[in-house]
Design a protein around this nucleic acid. Structure first.
Lengths: 226, 226, 226, 226
DNA sequence: TATGAATGAGAGTTCATTCAT
DNA sequence: GATGAATGAACTCTCATTCAT
């Protein structure tokens, strides 16, 4: 007692909040500098402590980075899921999911998620634990997609396509487009990415969808001929 | 014979062949250990020389890695393009392209391409030159796809979809699926990836395609309902 | 006791004393091997630590060397000033100053100052910070000389020569002679150097001075004819 | 034959002129970068050849640098001596010598001599051969001074001071002032240096000399009171 | 819990020098 | 005589990690 930091920490134990603080700091640094160039000293500096303390909590740099990965995925999933759940109608949910992917909310307090994913994939190539975490994340995500599909099929919005296969295809498409955006490819901007993925969903699931810029005209998706 | 590049290398200066040898060694090491963990000493060891020689030729580790990226993309493009060109019929060409992507020939003498791409994307996030090279590569690739589409439309095989948009969507889908394969995700094996992407192409371009495992039955793609 | 710096060091933080220890070690190594051949490893070895610690304290080899330069000049200045202040009479002070220059006390615990100055000049040719430090040192030194001149003029010991100009000329002469001694030129030994510079001062400032070896004879300086 | 470079070399043997070319190139590089930072590759580049050739001619970097030192001193001595010899009258010769020291001719084709001397002194601290060469140079130079003094004494221009002692003192003064100029000390510009040294000579040798800026007034040197 | 001090194990890069041609 | 290729031996600096306090 007498240590205001501990008092301020609030709901959890002092140690836990310090840990979280460090993980969050790590995530910020990773987002900025990439996994390869993130040093323990950077994280410590950002959290306002010493490198030794970071090691004290995580024992290894590796552990710290993996924890940061977990945090990133939790934050992302929660954010996406919440947004999607707030919308009604299967097609509208898909659209919300797409928007979250390509136009993440700026008010979220962790930066530049897009770059992080690609970097994270690269890391998971050689780090088993990261690979596991990432795979779970993708599985969760595909499950969410499949559930929306099932829901849409139940209401008759969607045609009877295999939900698992669609989820796989759809999330792959989103990932592929997200990569291009993260890499700043001039051929793919967020709007294009939304249009393409929504067009794919509409064509595959058999619901009617008119791209925003064509709304009011007779034309449909680039992929659905009249 | 018939491969003029090899011929040129043969009578070229010794220095050039040494360079290529080193780039190739670098590519192998990168494929095995990833960019982040590739050391000059590794490359030198693999090429049977000293680290100093590597610097002698490339001045900088960075230069070496970037050259390796170039080589990877050239090898890959050449291989894919040649295989595709050997087939006739637009749909068949697309299929060949897909196969090359997910089931690259084992006889090609550079290893584990899939992991390399993801790693390369990550690198291009913070390395301008790599980003440039990568972007050119993607542009080339999309052009090839678009050309096949145009060709298929000319023969009436494909329906009149926007070729550029299709190319963007298609290559994003391939990339997304390739990532899952590279990351060894149990939900996506090469066969599934082929089926999904060919299904997408068939549905979008409006040609008839029956997945191999259903050939002989009445069923079509998972995405094309009867 | 009576030396407050030592007292301060005693109760100062361990880090500070370590720093000083390293700077002192650096100075010793520099004096022995010269700036060009001084390696971080040498300094670390002399201080009984690891090269990494040296970097930990100074960040850069360059910083370390510059600090060593500062130390050298402080030690030298303090030593010279103290000796000079202990003597009374303007001419006697000048003589003490000269002696300090050409016959530095052997009991001072930093070695071979003469070689260091020349080496330091060479370094200051291309190292701005060293140049600055050196220049300040020279300015301080000239000020001391000029003050002695003013003092001597006040008492009537010296004739009304411009103190600044004399200081410039006098310190240049001392430097030039010191170089010859540092370079071990057979034409200039410390005694000669003392005689020459004292002769110059006597002739210029118009006080009577008899070279030691001629004391008791009628002759004066080589420069002052009867 | 058939090699035009050999033909162009002209008067000496081909090998010798190549050598000289390299020494000259070395001198230029040394003047620019200092001894410590002069690399064989720099010299080779400046001479338009390969490092290997430099080694071929000099065997060691050290040899090359020492040769460059010799060249520097020869060029300098020749230039100074020639200029001095062109003037008549002992005092005028001294003045010419002083001017050469502080205001070297810009048309001489080797650059920035001032910095070189200090650098050379530093090198001679630890390089016996350079030390020897330098010492000979200084001895030669003092002899020249002493000769002028003797000459002046013969004509009655100068008073009967010990010529050797004067030479030692005078060259030390010039060196000391030259150092300040080389180090760009704001307290000593070439004009001041000339004035001081000429004032010293006039006062010591007992000839009348009026500093340029006071010419026409009644005042004399700062050191010679009325 | 927290940290400053300390270090070992590299990593990249430099550069004089060697040598086959 | 001339050089491109090659290398060994350093050297500086980095950084995760340890440890005494």
């Amino acid at each position: 007692m007498g240590d205001e930091r501990t008092a301020v920490d609030g709901d959890g134990s002092a140690g836990d909040s310090r840990r979280e603080e460090l993980v969050r700091a790590a995530l910020e640094v990773i987002a900025e500098r990439g996994f390869a160039d993130t040093r323990i000293a950077d994280v410590a500096a950002r959290a306002g402590t010493s490198p030794a303390l970071v090691i004290y909590y995580f024992e290894t740099k590796d552990n710290l980075l993996t924890e940061a990965v977990r945090l990133a995925e939790d934050l992302w999933y929660d954010c996406g899921y919440r947004r999607m759940a707030a919308v009604s109608g299967a097609a509208a949910r898909l659209e919300e999911m797409i928007c979250t992917t390509f136009m993440p909310p700026a008010d979220v307090d962790f930066p530049d998620l897009g770059m992080l994913w690609v970097d994270l994939w690269a890391r998971s190539l050689r780090h088993a634990e990261v690979a596991r975490v990432r795979q779970e994340f993708d599985a969760r995500w595909r499950t969410v997609i499949a559930e929306v599909v099932v829901e849409g099929q139940a209401t008759g919005e969607f045609s009877p396509v295999d939900p698992g296969e669609f989820a796989t295809a759809f999330s792959a498409l989103l990932d592929g487009l997200a990569v291009q955006i993260a890499l700043d490819d001039p051929a793919v901007d967020p709007e294009t990415a939304c249009r393409i993925s929504m067009g794919f969903a509409a064509a595959t699931l058999g619901f009617r969808w008119v791209p925003p810029e064509l709304a009011g005209t007779a034309a449909g998706s680039a992929f659905t001929e009249s």
